[in-house]
Design a protein around this nucleic acid. Sequence first.
DNA 1: CTGAAAGCGCTAACAG
DNA 2: CTGTTAGCGCTTTCAG
Lengths: 361, 361
Amino acid sequence: MPSAARKRDLPTIPDVAGRAGVSTATAARALGGYGSVSATARQRVLDAATELGYRTNAAARSMITGQTRTLGMVVADIENTFFAQVTRGFTDVARAAGFDVILVNTDERIESERAALTVLQQRRVDGIAVTPASSTSSEHLRAAHDTGAALVLIDRRVRALAVDTVTVNNRAAARTLVEHLIAAGHRRIGLVSGIADVVGEPAGHRHITTVDDRLAGYRQALTAHDVAFRPELVCLGDFHRDAARANTVTLLGRPDPPTALFATDSTIALGVLEGIRDLNLRVPDDVSVAAFDDADWMNVVRPPLTVVAQPVYDLGAEAARLLTARVLGHDGPPVRRVLPTRLIVRGSIAAPAAVRRGRSS
Amino acid sequence: MPSAARKRDLPTIPDVAGRAGVSTATAARALGGYGSVSATARQRVLDAATELGYRTNAAARSMITGQTRTLGMVVADIENTFFAQVTRGFTDVARAAGFDVILVNTDERIESERAALTVLQQRRVDGIAVTPASSTSSEHLRAAHDTGAALVLIDRRVRALAVDTVTVNNRAAARTLVEHLIAAGHRRIGLVSGIADVVGEPAGHRHITTVDDRLAGYRQALTAHDVAFRPELVCLGDFHRDAARANTVTLLGRPDPPTALFATDSTIALGVLEGIRDLNLRVPDDVSVAAFDDADWMNVVRPPLTVVAQPVYDLGAEAARLLTARVLGHDGPPVRRVLPTRLIVRGSIAAPAAVRRGRSS
DNA sequence: CTGAAAGCGCTAACAG
DNA sequence: CTGTTAGCGCTTTCAG
């Protein structure tokens, strides 16, 4: 006997069929809910199955049907509330449609993402949802798609991939938020964002569309209002709060510090607030703060944060809808779903001190 | 052709074997990494596999081996940071050991939990981790365990089930925290907690061990310091912030309101802070606050919250270690792992106003 | 070290 | 409506 724990043998269709006194085919039909079975036969089979504690063997079934009723969900980090909410939306809809979900974290590492895709292919999942770690490295995604798995991209786009996508208009949303800052009188607006370079790829490129787009929106807002773009006010670290905290301290320590800070997601916002506190500065008196994503705690900090909220749960839910539709046979050109965002004005923005003192910038 | 999307046929072992010019057995051995294969044969097979884009069919393999290399993770709600962190710890260790994880949310509903267990049995997962929705309804857990799936309980115990468990000492931790409150001079301490009754079970019972234990710790602390236990200061709602918020407003609206509030988890703490704000009260001047779980935002609110921190990630990680060990053949009596907690004193606790004014209670 | 052959548990024709 | 018969793709004896 091998060292592996012996999985007790569960009853099989022949077992059930025998007990019910019918053929395996009839038992299978009753159990599987397909074909036609007389009411009496069905009942006998179902009773026998219950008595025996029969459980369909999903692997055996999927070998024949070619479907696993399983979906893959590939995210950077489930500990991040954004991904947790996306995943919740995704699993809720998937489950309602009869699909189970295998969850994989990549930590933004393209290598992990590749490995994840391989595993999911081995499992022959019917579909895969990905928040891609790179907008340029996509051969592994295409390969998985080519082998027949439905594919949907969430939150981030991949230009070279013509598949269903669920995003928000990050550029427009960021622009709106920054314009709000400008309207309050800010001219020096710092941007603290996530990853610039993807681990495993050549440095010096911004590879995640959300970062690119939010940065683009930021620049658009500045340009539209004749505010100079200063590269030194843009800090790209990673998606963890500590980097954001350090970047914030650096930014605010400049001789000519920004009067407002734009955090491009809620985790970064946490770091930004910590950095501000490290310097014993106050929001919004010393520095205004605006962020992307409306996390649950943002209305509890003092002052509450002005944010652009995005429908995070729906991002995942809609992705699952698209994906299950494809799996169930829907055919058609790639769908690009763009969900609406909403500006929520709260107390974290004030006019810069200079303006308040009457010295218009 | 059926309406279902056709999954392109991936190459199989015969395909690879043919291209490599060996038998299917040899190809399978090389691909599966078992038995003995000559170096040359192995290389030819591996090359052929790469050229063909061969991917092992996990279902076919597991039909024979009896192992799926899949684990189930059943949590109440992945959106809750606690479960998200647990899940991260769990998946990290599982992945490192070569196991994939199927995630299921139950929303604390025992019915969902039963359904989840059934699904996981159908998939013949090798092991299941559960944060059980009830400490008493456990037949479905036992049933799954009896059919051969390894089982580990996380965070919450189930008395009637002799399986591996990873928890913290909730009673001791709660007691420590409440004693800290008492030491600060508090005598009327409100407790705001999660679910009391489990959906789908008769009302009037508290069925989740974490709630029970934290409440027990609270009472122990009171008793040990001759503080009267007042049932009306204990509010059991559900695990969502809105209930906690409402309960907080109710508690603080009493003629004889508590001078301190104990929130039994971080989501509830959020509701407690909102409730306090609804009443325009200040922490800690008007009311002190202490909580279970050190969420990422707790150090960013003003004042930062005093908490009992538990090693949430490790709860999941250790569970995965225990589970994979069982799957890999470890045999032995159930392991009850109790991880350490830590009191983190921050600024949310002050002496009650009456004490500060010199009118000792 | 390698190959042939027998299934794992189930579904899918195909007869009856 | 029901039963018989092939396999799905892989691993595993068992020979050679």
